[in-house]
Amino acid sequence: MTAVKAPARDRAQASGGIAAAVKGRLQQLLAFASLIVIYAFFSFASPFFFSYGNFTAILFSTVVIGTLAIGTTFVIIAGGIDLSIGTGMALCAVMSGVFLVKLGLPLWLGVPAAILFGGVMGLVNGINVALLKIPPFIATLAMMLVAEGLALVLSDSTPIYFNDVPGYTDISTGNLIPGVNFPNAVLVLLAIALIAGVLLTKSVLGRYTYSIGSNEEATSLSGIDVRKWKIAIYAFAGLFIGLAGVMISARLGSAQPATGMGYELQAIAAVVIGGTSLSGGKGSIVGTLIGALIISVLNNGLQIMSIPQEWQNVILGCVILVAVYTDRIRKKETT
């Protein structure tokens, strides 16, 4: 009798697992479906949209927002917010210029240094939030202003050009894969998405990111040093700010100290469209990536259809509302 019963129970558990897995992925599936629909729409609406060249162009234009969004996904899942990623990116770009151009450090040293600088910014954010108990919105708003100012100060308010740094722009626009026109920047984005995805789902850091966002007090009472892990999360997310700074300056061939403002909201929009909850505890890297792609596809498609810039923002705003609203409805239905 028991021998018959046991497998039946296991099967029930397994099917429950699949159902739960599907339910958990639903928002991502929805987001992915919308991405396909939008892509298909533009393909029919404009003869210039559907091409390999435009496809890689879209991917290429996703890199900076995508990098920022992936980092900030961790912060948002942990129940925080990071407003300093936009101007922070500009500061890290400037720092890259300082390291490589002004100090003349070699590429292999200057680029990691610029990325680490982002990590240090994140660390400061984390300390302000976790130890000094400053609300994340305020702490990172302050950092946003500090970074904006520092970027201008350190660059004397003029762009730093990387013309004399051989190989720097290749980080973004080069082709590592021989014979195919597939920019390195996209490879970088895919690689970090993979790494971040694995860390978020498989590492202790990722698990505590969800736990803290889900219920900070309960996590703390479970014997986990929440302050330490919050600092770690912000610092980790900061590395992505640094990387985004490198990627944008490599793409432009220059560090533009005044370009950061506004990127943070685009990145947060990507995270939200991807189904990550601003109240914390839920979200995924795949969702964020799709969210960032949706924004890129929209920008690209609307541009190709010669819809003015102003209207593109109107449409993007509406997309955010629709995305969050469908998420709400779905949640209501499942509970």
């Binding site: 969800y210 736990s211 889900s214 219920n215 007090e217 309960a218 009472l221 505890g281 839920k282």
Partner: peptide, 10 residues
């Protein structure tokens, strides 16, 4: 619910 569990998790 407030101090013991991650309600949304398994």
């Amino acid at each position: 619910k407030r101090f013991g569990l991650l309600l949304e998790q398994d």
